[in-house]
């Protein structure tokens, strides 16, 4: 995802001299290296200092620039939280805050590097837009779409090596709209970010082994949330499952439940999230998800029972 971001960023910045990249001693892949080489004055490394990274971005934006801040998600938004809230959001400035490794992606680095409450925190701030693409192609799409947002954007990326999940998507990417990336009629997964891969694998298995036609919908825009789109899915499917790599509070699950209640949805609804815990488990990204209770074998059984 970070490669896809870097390449999309490079394409945008090449043709728009307002765009600059402010990093705090962490940088993205090859596309950014090319940008740094070609436009060194628009590549700003402030060092290990995230408050000035975000503060400077806001100052640049006050002068008409379009800055992207980039580092590991925890450091993009937690350390400089007040700069995010006041400098960027209160002043409603077009700063793109890019967080790499959202969720528990940095699975060997521990909770210091886990952004597991980021969607809740960023969504709660007025003016903020929260985007979380599911694969490299969608990362490129949201990066480009973010240029059309006049206020601040939090762009929650995965890391590297995510598979392509959207090449055969029945629906095209549309900013702010839920997007069906795998068709189905019985069960619908609502999900976002790298864990979408798990949803796609579960959907294939449910279809194969339980004869349940299962759709997967990428909710790449958490704020604004496509409420009409979600209402329609809650009305269309008998079983809806939210799968998210995020704390149980303030993410997609609770919002879908609220929409379901408000719209009088009659479907069966189940939500899966990370635990409300700092877990001391280290291993692969998959190991961490499993330790948080996001175990595909368990989810498969439960969803099959729910839909059966």
């Amino acid at each position: 995802m970070r490669n896809a971001f870097a390449n999309a960023f490079y394409d945008l910045a090449k043709n728009d001299r307002r765009i600059c990249l402010v990093v705090a001693d962490i940088t993205a892949a090859a596309g950014v290296a090319s940008f740094q080489k070609e436009s060194p004055e628009r590549f700003i490394n402030v060092g290990v200092a995230e408050q000035i990274m975000v503060g400077m971005c806001a100052g640049l934006a006050l002068r008409g620039m379009v800055p992207f801040a980039y580092t590991i998600a925890t450091f993009t938004i937690y350390r400089p939280f007040e700069q995010v809230r006041l400098d960027c959001c209160y002043q409603n400035l077009p700063v793109k805050l890019v967080g790499v490794g959202g969720g528990v992606n940095y699975s060997t680095l521990g909770s210091t590097h886990h952004a597991q409450e980021d969607v809740a925190l960023m969504s709660a701030i007025p003016h903020m837009t929260v985007l979380a693409p599911c694969d490299p192609a969608e990362s490129a799409a949201v990066t480009k779409a973010s240029m059309g947002v006049t206020g601040p954007v939090y762009l929650r990326l995965g890391k590297a090596g995510e598979p392509d999940l959207t090449a055969a998507a029945p629906e095209p990417f549309q900013f702010g709209k839920v997007r069906c990336i795998r068709g189905g009629t019985d069960v619908c997964f609502l999900t976002y970010g790298p864990i979408t891969k798990m949803a796609c694998e579960l959907a294939a298995k449910l279809e194969r082994e339980k004869n349940l036609s299962t759709a997967v919908v990428s909710v790449h825009s958490l704020k604004p949330l496509d409420e009409p789109g979600i209402r329609a899915l809650l009305a269309k499917f008998k079983t809806v499952v939210v799968l998210e790599e995020h704390a149980p509070f303030g993410g997609l699950g609770p919002q879908v439940k609220a929409i379901a209640w408000d719209s009088g949805a009659r479907c069966r609804l189940r939500t899966y999230s990370l635990k409300d815990e700092f877990i001391h488990v280290y291993g692969s990204h998959y190991d961490l998800l499993k330790a948080h209770g996001l175990d595909p074998a368990v989810i498969f059984q439960e969803v099959a029972e729910l839909a059966g």
Partner: peptide, 9 residues
């Protein structure tokens, strides 16, 4: 910090 960003721009 805001002023540093403005001055850089």
């Amino acid at each position: 910090g805001l002023a540093v960003g403005m001055a850089y721009a």
